[in-house]
Simulated scan of single mutants.
Amino acid sequence: MKRGIDLIISFLLLAILWPLFLVLAVWIKLDSSGPVFFRQERMGKDGRPFKIYKFRTMYINAPQLATASFENPEKYITKVGKWLRKSSLDELPQLINVFKGEMSIIGPRPLILKEKKVLSLRHVNGAEAVLPGITGLAQVRGRDLVTDEQKAAYDGEYAANLTLAEDVRICYKTFFDVICSRGIHEGKKK
């Protein structure tokens, strides 16, 4: 049932939002050189890597690391990228990953493969048994303001208690968190 809902929602949102995708693509290209989309290998369900899609928010010379690992991430973020990150619009292309079945709308955030500590904690608590999501329990409980241990614990809690009602609650809370820019540090977004 969850996969069916993800498929319908991602298809409808991609169909509705394609003009916004086009506007953002042009804006990104006008702001800096490089591709419109950022693609990066992330850890998926059952420890299988996949390529995630996001709108590019950094200059093409930025290191391939989690942004939180940078000493001075602001110097790599484009002008448009700063706004895309603050508004979370950089995440919209992940709807393609949802449509392809690599992600879900709700689930643990997909981590880069170098984030061994959190990946290990997730493995122990069973969080990798579900598809990663565009948003999840850890995001609505603090996003960038929670520790790695807390993130992994929330991800495990989500995987162990998967319900449609919880997904609806997380969607609702995510919407208002994004509108109010709660729980995010612009330079630390991954």
Rank of each mutant, 00 (worst) to 15 (best):
A159M: 09
G133V: 01
E115L: 13
T78P: 09
V98M: 04
G107M: 09
D90V: 05
A66Y: 03
L137K: 12
A62S: 12
L65F: 03
L65M: 10
T78L: 00
Y154H: 05
P63Q: 13
G156A: 14
K82T: 12
W83T: 04
G81H: 09
I105F: 09
T163K: 11
L84D: 14
Y154N: 00
D90K: 01
A153V: 03
I105Y: 03
R85L: 01
L121V: 02
S69W: 05
K82W: 07
K114R: 09
V146A: 07
I96N: 02
A160M: 07
K117C: 01
N97W: 00
K86C: 07
T67R: 03
R122E: 05
V146S: 03
G142F: 11
R141C: 10
Q64I: 15
P93S: 01
P108W: 15
N161R: 14
R143A: 08
L65R: 06
R141L: 08
K75T: 10
K114I: 12
D144Y: 04
A159D: 02
P63V: 12
S120E: 15
V146N: 11
L89P: 04
R85P: 06
L111I: 07
K116Y: 15
M103L: 14
Y158S: 03
V146Q: 10
S87R: 05
S104T: 13
S87V: 05
G126C: 08
I106N: 12
V124W: 09
G156F: 06
S69I: 02
A152K: 11
D90P: 02
K100R: 13
F99C: 11
E128C: 09
Q64C: 15
L137Y: 12
K100F: 10
K86N: 11
D155Y: 04
A62G: 07
Y76T: 00
R109E: 13
Y158A: 07
I96Y: 01
T135M: 03
Q94F: 00
L119H: 09
L84M: 10
L119P: 02
F99W: 10
N72Q: 10
G142R: 06
A129I: 08
V98W: 00
E71H: 04
P73I: 02
A129Y: 03
L164V: 15
L95D: 02
T135H: 01
A160L: 12
D90G: 01
L89H: 13
Q64S: 13
I112S: 06
T78K: 05
K116N: 14
R141Y: 09
R109A: 14
N72L: 10
S120N: 15
E157L: 11
K100E: 05
K116H: 12
A127G: 06
T135N: 04
L162H: 14
M103A: 11
E91D: 03
